[in-house]
Design a binder for these strands. Structure first.
Length: 131
RNA sequence: AUUGCAAGUAAGGUUAUCGCUGAGGCUUCAUUGCCUAAGAGGAAAGUCUGGACAGCAUAGGGCAACAUACCACCUAACAGAUGGUGUUGGUUGAAGAACUGACAAGAUAGUGCCACAGAAAAUAACCGUGUUGACUUUUUAAAGUUGGCAUAAGGGUGAAAAUGUGAGGUAAGAGCUCAUGGGUAAGUAUGGCAACAUAUUUACCGGGUAAACCUUAUGUGCUGAAAUGUCAAAUAAGUGAGUGCUUGAGAACGGCCCGUUCGAUGCUCAUGGGUAGACAGAUACAUAUUGGUGGUGACAUCAAUAGUAGAUAAAUGGUAACCAUUCCAACUUGUUGGGAUAACAGAAUCCGGCUUAUUUACUUGUAGUAUUU
RNA sequence: CGGGAGGUAGUUCAGCUCGGUAGAAUAUUUGGUUUGGGACCAAGGGGUCGCAGGUUCGAAUCCUGUCCUCCCGA
């Protein structure tokens, strides 16, 4: 069993096919400043959590700013994701989730942390009982 | 000490903890876990340039296109750098000068263009000046009208008007002649590798524009890591139209033509189905630092030391404490408290340059100002 | 990573090839017409031609550099 706070390559959304499928079939909600696309699937062996973060070039022209936001968002998700994972294990589900940063200015680490807690609370509420 | 200009250097550190990326070692059914030492810039940017490297072509010729253009030198190469030459602008200065920027073959090879104004904008006769013929008037010597010839001294313009000034000369004038300046070309001497400078002799003097076309000289094969190679996966030699089979479609030869070679289950267009993953390329060299030698310098060379990112929805991060630097406030004048560590900005095949963005601190050179000795 | 197009009045665009006057439509302002409005008619204002430097007597136009915007390519 891996360490609880890790976020390695295997837990990220990477394949173009997976992302296309998520945007085609997934559902979405909005909590400032994130727009969240998600898709639950029945887990075959152990529950998988695939995570992605997107910062549009339209709002942030500089690559430095986009990298900064991606790093902050990844860090916040990494620390807070444990609760969601526990629930997924109970229901034997996998999740694919994509966070899209829609605001046009950079928020601090503390602000993003509180937002992420709310997001994950909502996702836990959306877990379907049967699939 | 301070101000301006120019050039350069640095870009916080340590510890704890939670993570990320690839490398090495041990381990495991398994990147499953553990350990070790690493992990973003001066511009990584713009993509403006020159190469390396790779693929295709190497059988040649012509045309076109593009680039470069004072001289020497550096370099793998360059539209770059260094040192100089000439012309010219800016800043400082009373000046000599100093610093800094721009430009550089050819207008006597040819073509085009030069608005408005002006007689005329390029092999100058509109007015004027001089001379001469005809006609008219009348006071018989002049005036007027008109034509021929000569003439670039003068003419309100314009960015620019035909080498400036003075003298001679002439019917009037004119580089027509002379003197002295200015410019162009060639020769000689001296200095310099050379551009060129100085002196001198001869000849010449009808504008500008080549960042208008162009001419001359030199150089350039095309493409670009989405290159390219290997493996895996998937399948359709699908359907329709056109064209062609030795009287040659088309391809190689990727700007065009000639020429050469290949060439038939072919080629072109439309429509439709499938795949779209992995590895290599890919990080050790025009490498960096220090020192010596040569050179005014760019740079070259020798020696020693070092190994220094390699991702791919894309790593290099978050939190906390301390130290260091710096700013502010208080007073005990070296302590306390509070704040900041920035601006521009994130490698994507790799190097050399150019350009642009940019904060704070420091260093050097140079010029000015003030004070002290 | 590679390739291409553009920046001119508040807005949408001409003018650039071949250098000398910045123009059209629309919007806006004023006046007329109408009982009033719209439409129509007449007149007017509005421009550092993205920025900087250069060539030229003269630059929106030519050359160089630079900033910004948009598009295309697996």
């Amino acid at each position: 069993m891996s360490k609880p706070f890790s976020l390695s390559k295997h837990e990220r959304l990477k394949s173009k096919k997976q992302i296309d499928a998520l945007f085609l079939r997934g559902e979405a909600f909005f909590i400032f400043p994130y727009k969240i696309k998600y898709c639950f699937q029945a887990a075959e062996q152990s529950p998988q959590m695939h995570f992605g973060i997107s910062v549009p070039k339209r709002n942030f022209k500089r690559a430095v700013d986009r990298n900064k936001l991606k790093r902050l968002s990844r860090e916040v998700y990494r620390i807070q994701k444990v609760t969601l994972k526990d629930d997924l294990v109970k229901h034997q589900l996998s999740i694919q989730v994509m966070f899209i940063y829609t605001h046009s200015s950079i928020l601090t680490f503390a602000e993003l942390e509180s937002v992420m807690i709310k997001c994950l609370e909502k996702l836990r509420g959306l877990i379907p009982n049967t699939l």
